[in-house]
Amino acid sequence: MANTMLEVKELSTKYITRFREDVYAVDRVSLAVKEGRSLGIAGESGCGKSTLALSLMGYYFPPLHYTSGEIIINGKNISGMKPDDVRKSILGREIAYIPQAAMNALNPTRKIIHFIEDVIMEHEVYATKKDIYERAKKLFETLGLPAEVLQKYPVELSGGMKQRTVIAISVLLLPKVLIADEPSSALDVTSQKMVIKMLRHLMEAGMISSMIFITHELPLLYNVVDDIMVMYAGQIVETGASREMVFDPIHPYSKGLMGSIIVPEQGLRDVKLTAIPGVPPNLKKPPAGCRFAERCRFVRPECLVTNVSLRQAGDGRAYRCILPEAELREAYAREEHKK
C-alpha cells in the first residue's frame, strides 16, 4: 500500500469579512491523496477551490479562519498549528502551492534568480549565492527551461515561460505535495500544453510525490490527474477516478459540468450543450438542505430540507444526493432517449 501523502478529514473553514459576516467557503471536506497519485479539483467559479487549497495547507491568515476538522500532511498532523509555524516548517518543503495568477504576481523589478535566492535563503540561511545559482541552473535544465531565464526580468518572459518558471521555483525545496491552482487557464493551447507536460514530468520523475490540480477546464483535468473531485458551493458533490467521473458522472451537477465540455470534434456543432441555469447559493447563508437543489432538475421537496451526506458508490466513488445512483442513471437514460 502506498503512503498517504495528504489526508483531510471533515475540514470546515470560513472567511470573516470586514462587516463581520461569515462566509462558509469550505464545508466538511474529506480527501486523501496517496503517494504517486494526483487529484483534480473542479467546480465553477466561487465554489471554494482556492479556499480549500489554502485551508488544507493550514494557511490560516485573516480573513480565512479554521473551524473544524483534521489535516495530516506526510504523517504530520498540522491541525491547530500556528499559521506562522506552518509557513516555516511545512510550506515549500512538505507542500508547495502555486497560486492562481502567480505568474503575474512576480515583482517586475527583480530578476528570476533573485526570487530563487529569496526562497532558498528563507529556509537555508547559510546557502551561498553561487550554490543557489548552480542548484537553480540544474533544476531548470532538468525541467527543460533555458538557464538564461534566471538572468531575466519577468516582463522579458512570455506568459507560458513565466508560468513554467513559477512552477520550477515552487519545487526548488523538493516538496512532497504540489498544489497548482489554475496554472494554465490564462495561456494559449501550446503554452498550456507545455505547462501540463512539465507537471506530468515532475510526477513521473518522482520530483514530487503527489499533486493537486485545480481548474474548471475539465478536458485538461482529464489529461493530467488520476482522480477528480467536483465541488459545489463549498462541498464535495462527487469524487472518483477521472475516467468514470468524465464519462459516467452520477451527481446531476457533475453531469451538467461534463455536458458543458467543448472540444473541437466532429458532431459538436449544432448540439445544445447541457447548461445549468441559475446561480450558486450565497455562502453567507448556505441552504439547509442540498446546496444544489435550487438548480437541480430532479429536485424534490425533501431536498430543500434534508442535509445530504456523501454516499459511497464503490471503488472510492462517492456522491452527494438523496436519489440513489440507479435512479439517477435511469433518469439520464430517459433524457438521452428523448434527444
Partner: peptide, 19 residues
C-alpha cells in the same frame, strides 16, 4: 494542425510529445 493537436482531448489520446 498543431493548434488542434495542442487542445486537450477527451475522446482521443492527447499527444504530449509534440511540445
Amino acid at each position: 494542425r498543431r493548434l488542434l493537436n495542442d487542445v486537450p482531448k477527451i475522446y482521443e489520446e492527447w499527444d504530449l510529445t509534440t511540445v
